[in-house]
Write a protein that binds this DNA or RNA. Structure first.
Length: 490
DNA sequence: ATGCATTGTCATCAT
DNA sequence: AGATGATGACAATGC
């Protein structure tokens, strides 16, 4: 082993301290070779400095950590060792030999200011975040009660009876129609009784047909073709809901008659009752009385008045149109389940096939179905509107379901990311502690090396005036610090 | 009386 | 070009 004690370097600007064989880390036995070094032959010192160097070199990986750019010594080829032991940069390393106790870990708080708390979660491509929607579905199903349609008395019908008409919606729609040059509301008003300007038209303002696409609908008093079993009724009303307080006694009677008559025949082509008549997703949407659907239970107990199903039934335009069958307060008789607005329209226009066929048949079958009947333009328009609305209703339900699923999914993802963030913060904290400890240790070793270095006169080198620098090829040099470096230390 | 949830509907865009 | 799906917005309704 070559003498390594008291390496004395010529006080040249750059003095090669020694040429480390290979890399200076990784536990390579240090056979320090100092050209021109003067041997003092102190065995114990030799061993000490060997150990010191080995320890020092063993942690040269610290260079992988942040290396504050210290102005290189003349050329950039030197990698200053000081950079491995930053002086006070973290409040731990010190320019002078540090007593062992100085290596106690600094508190995390000492470094808090040096690191951002923010951990960009996007950096983590965690596969776990890609939870498929399907996973949430079962959960959603537990959270989401089945979509049920309701059959509720129509408050709007009551309002209508009380002479309260018009809603903002109605006006809005009416204006919209007017602006398009087609006020269907006007068009739909009765033609049998000119004076019968239905206030309910406001409420039914969106009652049906596509804007500008649907001609005035025929009403039950409007002879309609192709409705077997129907009885022509001469009454004044639109095809849709009537209004009892505006109806003449004659029309009322006729209306009632018509309704009864229709009902007596409707089952000839309707599905089994109203339940299947308008039920694009009957199994899903029909109110089933049970504990989870008290409304359905309640509605089961309702006894709608069938005789007025055309004049007072559900004049609501939106929302619960399917459940907008008005229940008269006075004694009433039982009747089939309430109809939706479109059902009533279909009934009024004597559409000769059931709602679910209108809505659910594939387009080809649907068109074929249409060819089997001779329908007026009004009927055709209504059928297409019903189909459109029915499909859109289902689409809206699906859309809302997906939205809820998405929210659930995102909530889960958020929780996951928050947990992940906490984990990363903890991890960072531990790394910071570890780094502080290692830097502290490096400072100690760095200082210890200096305590063993001697110049030609046997005097120690000042750690303030010299620094150890390592070149990329692994060689370490003892170089005098520039004034600027000294100032930086201060 | 008020706020919220639900639902149907319309308008609009994309496929 | 028309049918259909998706979705935001709105309004009605019930709780």
């Amino acid at each position: 082993m070559c003498s390594t004690a008291n390496y004395v370097l010529p006080l040249r600007r750059t003095c090669e301290v020694f040429a480390a064989p290979g890399r200076l880390c990784g536990g390579v036995p240090m056979t320090n070779h100092f050209p021109g070094a003067r041997t003092h032959g102190a065995t114990q010192e030799t061993q000490e400095i060997d150990v010191a160097w080995q320890e020092l070199m063993a942690i040269t990986e610290l260079q992988e950590f942040e290396v504050p750019s210290q102005s290189s010594y003349e050329t950039a080829q030197y990698q200053t060792m000081e950079s491995m032991a930053p002086m006070g940069a973290y409040g731990v390393a010190q320019p002078h030999p540090v007593p062992p106790h100085a290596c106690e870990l600094g508190t995390a708080g000492a470094y808090e200011g040096c690191y951002s708390e923010e951990v960009p979660v996007c950096q983590r491509q965690d596969g776990g975040a890609e939870v498929m929607y399907g996973h949430a579905e079962s959960e959603l199903h537990q959270r989401m009660p089945p979509v049920l349609s309701h059959t509720q008395p129509s408050l709007m019908a009551l309002r209508e009876q009380m002479g309260i008409s018009g809603t903002s919606q109605g006006h809005r729609r009416a204006n919209a129609c007017f602006s398009q040059g087609l006020n269907r509301h006007t068009l739909w008003t009765t033609h049998g009784h000119g004076s019968h300007v239905r206030s309910a038209e406001d409420l039914e303002s969106d009652s049906g047909l596509s804007l500008g696409s649907s001609p005035p609908l025929a009403s039950p008093d409007n002879p309609v073709v192709g409705a077997p079993g129907y009885r022509s009724v001469d009454m004044a009303m639109t095809y849709s809901d009537g209004e009892p307080d505006n109806m003449t006694e004659h029309s009322r009677r006729a209306h009632a008659h018509y309704s009864l008559d229709y009902q007596s025949h409707s089952h000839s082509y309707l599905y089994s009752g109203a339940h299947s008549y308008f039920s694009p997703q009957a199994a899903l949407s029909h109110a089933q009385p049970n504990a989870r659907n008290p409304q359905a239970v309640k509605e089961q107990g309702q006894v709608p008045v069938n005789n007025d199903m055309f004049n007072d039934a559900g004049v609501s335009s939106r929302g619960s149109s399917q459940s907008s069958f008005y229940t008269k307060p006075q004694g009433s008789i039982s009747s089939p389940a309430p109809h939706s607005r479109d059902e009533r329209r279909a009934i009024a226009l004597k559409i000769p096939f059931p709602m679910d066929k209108i809505i659910n048949l594939p387009v080809d079958d649907f068109n074929e179905l249409l060819t089997q009947y001779t329908l007026t333009d009004t009927q055709l328009a209504l059928v297409r509107d019903i189909r459109r609305r029915g499909k859109n209703k289902v689409a809206a339900q699906n859309c809302r379901k997906r939205k809820l699923e998405s929210i659930i999914h995102l909530e889960g993802e958020l929780n996951q990311l928050q947990t992940q963030r906490e984990h990363l913060v903890q991890e960072r904290l531990e790394f910071q502690r570890s780094l502080a400890f290692i830097k502290c240790r490096l400072t100690d070793l760095y200082a210890e090396v200096f305590t063993h270095l001697r110049d030609e006169d046997g005097q120690p080198y000042s750690i303030n005036e010299y620094s150890l620098q390592q070149t990329p090829d692994g060689k370490i040099y003892l170089v005098p610090q520039t004034n600027m470096q000294k100032r930086e230390q201060c």
